[in-house]
Amino acid sequence: MTQDRRNGVLAGLFYIVAAATSIIAVLCYDPVLSDKWYLAVIDGRKTEVLVGVLNDLLLILSAVGTAVMLFPYLRRWNEHLALGYLCFRFMEAVFIAIGAVSILGLVQLSIHYEANGAADQANLLELGYLLQGFHRWTSMLGPNLMLGVNTTLYSYLLFRTRQVPRPLATFGMATAVLVFAAGLLEMFGAFGPYSAGKGLLALPVGVYEMSLAVWLIAKGFRSLD
């Protein structure tokens, strides 16, 4: 197996890991993103939430991994656009990391909730709802808006460099517009963070990433020589 083929396989695996960990994280965060988040630790669901944080960390690593693996192949056509993609992908990872920190903050508040009096509990509730809002905004800015921008850039560069079939890259650019639009609509209150409408708009980008992953694993990158 050539180095370019191995790089393609590794990039494809990173995309698959990113998709799987993002879904697991969302499912595991339910105890601290519900209205009764303060009962998460009392109900014995702390470990579940921490598993979600661990998956977010794996998501960050895999997102950065895709950027690092793609960059040498994308820069051949336009290094400035490739650097732009790299920066926006890193920004997406940073927003995800900040969101994970807000989840850890909710866990910590839940730990202290039962041990405090009514007055302190009221303050903890305010802080908790603030952290929930914080997580919602970081989730919108990272996996929606930043994802839309960086997906547009790398799909366009894949189109120009012909590293993947042009119809696949074109599909990627279209899905990038949809996931960006989903973030904007949530920002202005048209969609909730987990609404069916937002899910329908964001779903195609997941289909694209899995299709890209399969192609890269099967075919690898074209040689840089």
Rank of each mutant, 00 (worst) to 15 (best):
Y85P: 02
R75A: 15
G105C: 10
N78D: 15
Y73Q: 09
L86W: 08
F95N: 12
V107Q: 02
L59N: 04
V107M: 03
G99W: 01
S62L: 05
L70N: 10
N78T: 12
V107N: 00
L70T: 06
V94A: 13
I103A: 02
L61G: 14
L70Q: 12
V49W: 00
G105F: 07
I103R: 01
L58Q: 00
R76T: 15
I98Y: 10
G99A: 06
A97T: 13
I111C: 03
M69W: 11
T66A: 06
L54Q: 02
A82W: 08
A93E: 04
V64G: 02
F95H: 12
N78R: 13
S110F: 03
L109C: 04
T47V: 07
M91W: 10
W77T: 08
C87T: 12
L58G: 04
E92T: 09
H80M: 13
P72H: 14
E92C: 11
I96N: 04
L104P: 01
Q108H: 14
S102Y: 07
W77M: 06
A93V: 06
M91N: 09
V68H: 07
L54G: 10
P72C: 13
F71W: 15
V51T: 01
A67G: 15
S110E: 03
S62M: 09
E48K: 06
E48T: 12
T47R: 08
G52A: 03
W77F: 11
M69Q: 09
N78L: 14
V49L: 04
D56E: 09
G105P: 12
L50M: 08
E48S: 08
L109N: 02
A63Y: 00
G65R: 05
A93Y: 05
C87V: 15
F71E: 15
M69R: 09
L59Y: 08
L86C: 03
D56N: 10
A100V: 03
E92I: 09
V68M: 10
M91E: 14
G65A: 07
I60P: 03
V49T: 02
V64L: 11
I103N: 01
F71V: 14
V64F: 12
V68E: 10
I103D: 01
V49E: 00
A67C: 15
A100K: 04
L104V: 14
V68C: 10
M91V: 14
F90T: 12
L109M: 13
R75F: 14
A67E: 07
C87H: 09
F90K: 03
V107H: 02
